[in-house]
Amino acid sequence: MARSKPTGASRVDRPANGAVGWLMRIRRGDTFIQEFFSDAAYGGKRASQRAARDRYSELAATLPPPKTSEGAMSVRNSSGVVGVRLAREGTDAAGEPRESYVASWRENGRDRTVRFSCSAFGKRKAFQLACLARELRTTDREVLMAKLAENRKAGKSAAGKKAAPKKAAKKAAAKKTAKRK
């Protein structure tokens, strides 16, 4: 099995410049630290790599955790739900665009996705299922269908929140339209 390079370290081999060793870099927020670990100073390639890895681990333990975009709404998001998007891929036999709602998230360092076809479920139900999949972080369709039925029976939205009465929703939409005019 091939060896993997240590996190935050890159090999530098430039003997003409006298730079042969490992370059360790770490960035956390506004803090950026970069250090060079020369093979000559540490007694060889493996020793300098170990020193770079140890220094990275030491700094990672003292600095705050890295910021991620997990749960942040992107400006490109058009669905209004983090991790849920409408995918349009090709056309069906009738020439209509094939659409599906896709829920995505990271789990144990791997990307997970599940898609729900708008033609199979209808646009509204596909969106609700994708929202549930994202919230529950599961690709098990049976669990999702059961949870959706349970939420509908309890009068809740796809996200499990109490659904607003239809009259109030219509009134709010009419008010919004009136403001635009």
Rank of each mutant, 00 (worst) to 15 (best):
G83Y: 13
K45M: 13
A169L: 11
P64Y: 08
E142P: 10
K5G: 08
V114W: 06
A154T: 00
T31G: 06
D39L: 01
T68C: 11
T138S: 13
R180I: 09
V143E: 14
W22Y: 04
G21E: 05
R124Y: 11
A168P: 06
V12S: 01
D92K: 00
A149P: 12
V75F: 14
V82G: 07
T7R: 13
S117M: 08
F127E: 07
R3L: 14
W105L: 01
G122Y: 13
T68R: 10
R27G: 07
R3W: 14
A103G: 01
E135R: 15
V82M: 09
S79P: 03
A40N: 08
G29S: 11
K167S: 00
S48M: 07
E142K: 10
C131L: 08
F36R: 01
P6F: 03
W105K: 04
A52P: 01
T62P: 10
R112T: 07
G95T: 01
A87N: 11
S100I: 03
D13Q: 07
E89N: 08
A9F: 06
G122K: 09
I26E: 00
A94V: 08
S78E: 14
E142I: 05
A41D: 15
A61M: 06
G83W: 13
R14K: 08
F127A: 09
R50T: 13
W105S: 03
R28M: 00
A16K: 13
S57Q: 15
S57Y: 11
K162Q: 14
S69C: 03
A133Y: 13
P15C: 02
V84A: 05
P6L: 02
R11W: 12
F116G: 04
L148Y: 12
S157Q: 08
Y101W: 15
G71M: 01
A133P: 11
R25D: 05
N151G: 02
S78K: 14
S104P: 05
F37L: 04
A163S: 11
A16M: 09
Q34F: 02
R124V: 12
V81C: 09
R98P: 11
P64F: 06
P65D: 04
P65E: 06
V102Q: 10
V84H: 01
V82H: 12
K179R: 05
A126P: 09
R137Q: 15
I26K: 02
G8K: 04
R46A: 10
N151Q: 11
E142C: 05
W22H: 00
A146F: 10
W105F: 08
Y56E: 03
E142V: 06
G83E: 10
A41S: 15
Y42Q: 02
A172N: 01
R14I: 07
E150D: 06
A103S: 07
G90R: 01
K67R: 14
K167N: 02
R110F: 13
P165H: 04
